[in-house]
């Protein structure tokens, strides 16, 4: 337990010490909120869908979580390159505990990043329909963060250098984000797109956040939570499996 806590703490310290990373990773969500939130605002309103910024904010929170989480998971490649992975891999603790400590740390960081984006969107005029439910949104953010940190860990365990990283960003993270309904409503989508969205776990995360923050949901909160938890467990399991197989 103590070991898991210290591995978690390590991730937190690394996060707090990389101010430039925190600030740098806020640029993109900010840009999306400003450019899209204000840019598409009037079109969205005219289409009778209400306030676009309000609709968009949960999507952008989801975006910052998935980016930070996958990145945290993939950081294992850095640990490998800088050698610290060896130190962890010979330590007398189970691979599962190493994986859990790291994943909890990465997920905490990603949740923090999501909360910062939530605060920023409040500054830009986002207003949740029920302030109390913001508290309930935090555990959802954490599950989403856990899910994608585990996915990142799994991917990192299969790669042995940074060369695959760009590929993953372009062919996995970007599609997961763009096809999740973060930017558009899931109602009335073409069949193909709608099926793809249903296969995208982020889609359920953002749907759950919308349910709690603006009171709109497509799948329903119950289904969202069920799917998110199941997929998270599967990814944690797969992540541990592949992590265990790492050879140095």
């Amino acid at each position: 337990m103590k070991k898991i806590y210290f591995l978690w703490l390590r991730q937190i310290k690394r996060y707090l010490r990389s101010r430039s990373r925190i600030i740098g990773s806020l640029g993109q969500p900010l840009l999306f909120l400003l450019a899209l939130g204000y840019g598409f605002g009037s079109v969205f309103q005219k289409a009778g869908e209400g306030n676009y910024l309000n609709f968009l904010a949960p999507g952008i929170i989801g975006m910052s979580i998935i980016f930070t989480a996958i990145f945290s998971g993939i950081e294992i490649i850095w640990d490998r390159q800088f050698g610290f992975l060896k130190e962890m891999m010979v330590a007398p603790m189970s691979r599962i505990s190493i994986m859990i400590g790291r994943t909890l740390g990465g997920a905490t960081v990603a949740t923090a990043q999501g909360l910062i984006v939530l605060l920023i969107s409040l500054l830009f005029g986002f207003h949740p329909y029920n302030w109390a439910l913001i508290i309930a949104a935090v555990p959802i953010m954490f599950i989403v963060a856990l899910l994608f940190t585990a996915l990142g860990t799994m991917i990192a365990s299969l790669l042995d250098d940074m060369q695959g990283f760009q590929l993953i960003m372009n062919f996995l993270v970007m599609p997961l984000f763009f096809l999740s309904g973060a930017l558009f409503p899931l109602q009335g989508l073409p069949k193909a797109l709608s099926i793809i969205a249903q296969l995208d776990p982020l889609s359920y995360g953002i749907d759950a956040l919308r349910d709690l923050l603006i009171g709109i949901s497509y799948y329903g909160l119950g289904l969202d939570i069920l799917i998110l938890s199941t997929v998270t467990l599967v990814f944690l399991f797969l992540g541990s499996y592949f992590f265990k197989k790492i050879q140095i």
């Binding site: 310290k13 690394r14 800088f82 060896k86 130190e87 330590a91």
Partner: peptide, 29 residues
Amino acid sequence: RRTFGIVFQDPSLDDELTAWENIELHGVL
């Protein structure tokens, strides 16, 4: 893993932690 300790040929420290934190983490592990 419980029976041995190792000093690697290649670096295996966490650069973003202090010297003390590296040692502390090792002791805990």
